[in-house]
């Protein structure tokens, strides 16, 4: 069972590292959004540094959604999803492996790149690490909420736009606590730990709920 889990994980990581994998594209998209925001707001560095965590979080959220609709679609098309369904590995664990692979190739690079992009929005030095940390613990929630929605739309040919529509309202809590934890690190009345721990709790809950929902959706769509 462990070997099947690792096999799926390895396969998805290998697929993502090949050309056309979602990972680096999401990173480029992240960069593009962070670059676009100052053009809309103006080059006022004070303003940018004040809303910097929000820009980074919003950019990361949108970048996570890019390509998420392909999470199960490719497997549905080439039939490997049927093999996964038929294998001894519980579907929940298979979903967990795929979600983990998605996070490793998308969420993790985004979180690591966030301090660099923070330079563009004049993020103060002491906020770099907290922003990266909030993204690090917050993006798994996005991966797994997204995995649930991706499983619902796995059979769709033209499911590209429906997925963000489904996912966005559900990510409101993650966004709120991610940004407020990052802002708390910049100074403010609340300690960093309070929203940060709630963010961790949200991520853990999302991993459980998202995995169960995605597995249920895949089972029912068979």
């Amino acid at each position: 069972m462990t070997s099947a889990f690792l096999a799926i994980l390895k396969r998805d990581l290998a697929l993502a590292s090949r050309a056309g994998g979602g990972g680096e594209l999401a990173l480029v998209f992240f960069l593009t959004i962070v670059v676009l925001v100052p053009f809309a707001l103006g080059p006022d560095l004070n303003l940018l540094s004040r809303i910097g965590p929000a820009i980074l979080w919003l950019g990361a959220l949108l970048s996570m959604l890019i390509g998420l609709d392909r999470l199960f679609q490719g497997d549905e098309e080439d039939g490997s999803l049927d093999l996964i369904r038929a294998s001894v590995l519980p579907l929940e664990l298979a979903v967990l492996a795929k979600g983990l692979a998605h996070w490793l190739t998308t969420g993790l690079p985004l979180a690591l790149a966030a301090p660099l992009l923070g330079l563009l929005v004049a993020l103060p030095g002491e906020a770099m690490l907290p922003v990266a940390a909030t993204l690090l613990v917050g993006t798994p929630a996005l991966s797994f909420i997204g995995a649930g929605a991706a499983a619902l739309t796995a059979g769709l040919r033209r499911g590209g736009l429906i997925l963000p529509v489904l996912v966005a309202p559900l990510t409101v809590p993650v966004l709120i606590f991610g940004v407020s934890a990052a802002n708390a690190a910049l100074g403010g009345t609340i300690p960093f730990a309070t929203p940060f721990l709630i963010l961790c709790a949200l991520s853990l809950a999302a991993i459980v709920v998202g995995t169960l929902a995605a597995a249920a959706a895949l089972r029912h769509s068979a």
Partner: peptide, 23 residues
């Protein structure tokens, strides 16, 4: 069945959203 799963996930989420928006 797909929409039923989405509805249930949404239902779990509504109190969380309420709580986080309050915060």
């Amino acid at each position: 069945r797909a929409v039923a799963i989405l509805t249930l996930v949404g239902f779990v989420n509504v109190p969380i959203i309420k709580f986080s928006v309050d915060w």
